[in-house]
């Protein structure tokens, strides 16, 4: 991948972070930390990896993305808006009455959103269903699903993980946004899910570990996942909660809150300086 392309993706990711915070400050509520930690991965998915047509959102051969950690909805809405699924003017309506941008992703109201998520733990089963359907129809569709690290406390994740492996669903790639923090504190304190790599391997998955903020590493992991046959791939992406805004980084208290107007101005200053 040419350096200029990488730089372009970094620039898009910076814009996505600005969009996320713009949406959140207007909404006055929402999940800042987990949206920012997911921003680089979602950017690479939508602006490098996935095949889709925003003018024809139901194109049958499209790749599909499931945001299983649905509370990072602002990150998803930002890429969908920038990709052209809807006018970016909608960003200002996040979480407001009548908006197409609900608090958590809802496929019934938002173009480009594939399934309903928000109640944690349900996206992997849905992604399996999407991938199995593509296989039955012999379509080239690849399915991507992003989980939070707190989310994998949910038992359904492991039910679904066994289904993915049992049915050798190799047109599926899951990504774990491993920012290390959940609502009540660090994963290690709330409920330790380590060793993550060993767990997913033992469940029959091909596992790749990356730095989830390094564009080159994200690209190479997503490309590599496509070559893995006969088993699903899990990309464990080590990330920083609140990434890109210094005072939000690694702060558990920014899990479920929007920036204040003042915090937003400071964040914009940092992001415009390209920190």
């Amino acid at each position: 991948m040419a350096k200029v392309e990488i730089e372009k993706l970094k620039e898009i990711a910076r814009q996505i972070r600005i969009d996320i915070l713009t949406m959140l400050v207007e909404a006055g509520s929402g999940h800042s930390g987990g949206s920012l930690s997911a921003a680089d991965i979602i950017t690479v998915l939508y602006f490098y990896k996935m095949r889709y047509d925003p003018k024809n959102p139901k194109w049958e051969e499209r790749d599909k993305f499931v945001l299983s950690k649905g509370h990072a909805a602002p990150a998803l809405y930002a890429v969908l808006g920038r990709a052209g699924y809807f006018d970016t003017g909608h960003f200002h309506t996040l979480r407001k009455m009548g908006s197409i941008l609900r608090g958590h992703p809802n496929s019934a109201v938002t173009p480009g959103v594939e399934v309903c998520t928000g109640s944690l733990g349900q996206g992997l089963s849905q992604a399996n269903g999407l991938a199995l359907s593509a296989r039955l129809d012999k379509r080239p569709t690849r399915v991507y699903v992003m989980h939070g690290d707190g989310e994998i406390d949910e038992g359904q994740i492991w039910e679904a993980a066994m289904t993915s492996a049992h049915y050798k669903i190799d047109n599926l790639c899951a990504i774990l946004d491993n920012n290390g923090l959940q609502i009540d504190g660090p994963n290690k304190e709330v409920k330790d899910t380590d060793p993550l790599v060993g767990k997913w391997r033992m469940f029959g998955w091909h596992v790749i570990e990356i730095n989830g903020h390094n564009i080159e590493e994200i690209i190479s992991a997503l490309d590599k996942a496509e070559e893995i046959k006969g088993k699903p791939t899990m990309i464990i992406a080590h990330t920083v909660k609140g990434k890109g805004v210094s005072f939000m980084e690694n702060k558990v208290e920014y899990h479920g809150v929007a920036p204040t107007r003042d915090e937003f101005e400071r964040a914009m200053k940092e992001l415009s300086e390209g920190n």
């Binding site: 399934v115 996206g123 089963s125 849905q126 399996n128 269903g129 999407l130 199995l132 359907s133 679904a160």
Partner: peptide
């Protein structure tokens, strides 16, 4: 969940 994905 898998049923929902297939239906989708």
């Amino acid at each position: 969940g898998t049923s929902a994905g297939l239906a989708s």
